[in-house]
Design a binder for these strands. Structure first.
Lengths: 262, 262
DNA sequence: CGAAGGCTTGATAGACCTCAAACACAGTGG
DNA sequence: CCACTGTGTTTGAGGTCTATCAAGCCTTCG
């Protein structure tokens, strides 16, 4: 009670907003877990984070959070569900640029690059919180440790883009799929989601195809191979890793690029 | 004289360093031009930038500035020449992740991610300046506008990675090459290098292949097509754009992702 | 002048794509 | 309850972009 009262202190500037802290069910815990893994945070930092004003909402699958060209005034924190960033080409082709799990602030970059150069969409029914840019800027200014954690997060995002470049440029379809599964399982593990060998992964084969630069048909055939070899189970929105060692070998996966203590 | 004296003021902490300002021939101008295009800078910001302590050196082509796994204590500013970031796979394959032109701070991310997840190498004889992390951190703390400019620069880097992802995932070899040539010509134009249709581009066909995820042989054949169609001249370390409009169309190039006023 | 690196060319091969159709499954509505 | 629809998955056949291998050529440079 008193905590919440203290947190409410400086909210009036953001009408219709409530502090992150007040979300029922504590869905912001994934963000906290992640940021604490990125930089040492003092308790006042965490308090400031939870004091962030926000509005939240539930969205169905395949809903756009932003479209290319948008100029957002708030950042989207994914509280629950699954999302991706993507680009559409004139030819109608789609390239998925990244997948996002609960705890990710999907468009943090919009704090410094006002115009979106790509879209963001949910892939599953999701709950999101919108954090006003202004409030984030202020928080970063007053709490440099939080700023550092957010910067590290953005830079790790860039490191993941680089890793995907390596995959699209040099790896076979088989390796790409294995690598992506390793990466997503790791990311989910890091925020404490999934029951280790089993992970919720609400992604269709077509979406995998758009992320990996291969056709849906070919994704299907490679998945069958991975299943036949006993490396994974995949379907109905979940991934089960049956043989971690073999999957990591198949994808030449080395988590160093995630810049996390293993 | 008095300017230089003022600039020398707080250098003693960095032995063997001189201020950026003191470099003969003003090779730091590309950085200044770039940062001014990224955020409004006051004259005191520019002065602080030029006061940065650094050591500089000349390197031949194909010299490594950093290797994967390094923990740099300084950032590399490319003053002159040409460089790239790359990853090597166990199989010996190489993926080039980005190309860098004078004015780029090639490993700015190492300010927040201590371990290099990729290598950096020169592609041509180059001059570089090493800027101590500590001095950069201090500068950013004292000059938030410079910090913002550097952040924007890092985020634009990430935007370029995303654009390359689109290329590797969805575009044909022909489109990829056309797109890359557009991008590099734009980047060079932005820092005032090159004489518009003609740009120094000291890159071999093998390096293009490693950047674009196609084989050297195929790069060669596509280049011949682009030449035969009268879009470009390319060879001997330089690129000439003979038909801008056609090249932009061939690569479906839209510079929005560079986040620069056109 | 020989060696090395880069460019060019031809022939063959393979990974992956496209088209097309059938199947499975969940949700909807009569 | 059962057609009906839509989305996602699976399978087959043929085709193409691009890789690989191999060799010749050119330029640069010690």
């Amino acid at each position: 009670m008193s905590a919440s009262a203290a947190i409410r202190r400086d909210l009036p500037a953001y009408p219709n907003c409530i502090p992150l802290f007040d979300l029922p069910g504590c869905p912001h815990r994934h963000l906290l877990v992640k940021l604490e893994g990125l930089a040492p945070l003092a308790s006042e930092d965490k308090a400031a984070l939870l004091r962030l004003p926000m509005t939240s909402g539930k969205l169905p699958a395949d809903a756009d959070l932003h479209r290319e060209g948008d100029r957002p005034s708030a950042c989207c924190l994914l509280l629950d569900g699954f999302a991706c960033r993507y680009r559409l080409l004139a030819t109608g082709l789609r390239q998925i640029l990244s997948f996002h799990v609960p705890g990710d602030i999907v468009d943090l970059q919009s704090l410094y690059l006002p115009v979106m150069d790509h879209g963001i969409a949910t892939l599953a029914p999701s709950q999101v919180a919108f954090l006003p840019h202004q409030a984030l800027h202020e928080m970063i200014r007053q709490h440099p440790r939080l700023g550092a954690a957010l910067w590290r997060d953005m830079l790790i995002d860039a490191a993941i883009f680089r890793e995907w470049l390596v995959g699209l440029g040099q790896r076979s379809a088989y390796e790409r799929i294995a690598h992506l599964f390793c990466e997503l399982a790791f990311k989910l593990k890091m925020v404490g989601l999934g029951d280790d060998p089993i992970f919720a992964l609400p992604v269709t084969q077509g979406e995998l195809a758009d992320a990996l630069g291969i056709s849906t048909v070919h994704v299907n055939r490679v998945l069958q191979q991975l299943r036949a070899e006993g490396l994974i189970r995949f379907g109905n929105g979940s991934l089960t890793v049956l043989d971690w060692q073999a999957l990591i070998a198949a994808g030449e996966f080395d988590p160093a690029y995630l810049h996390r203590p293993v």
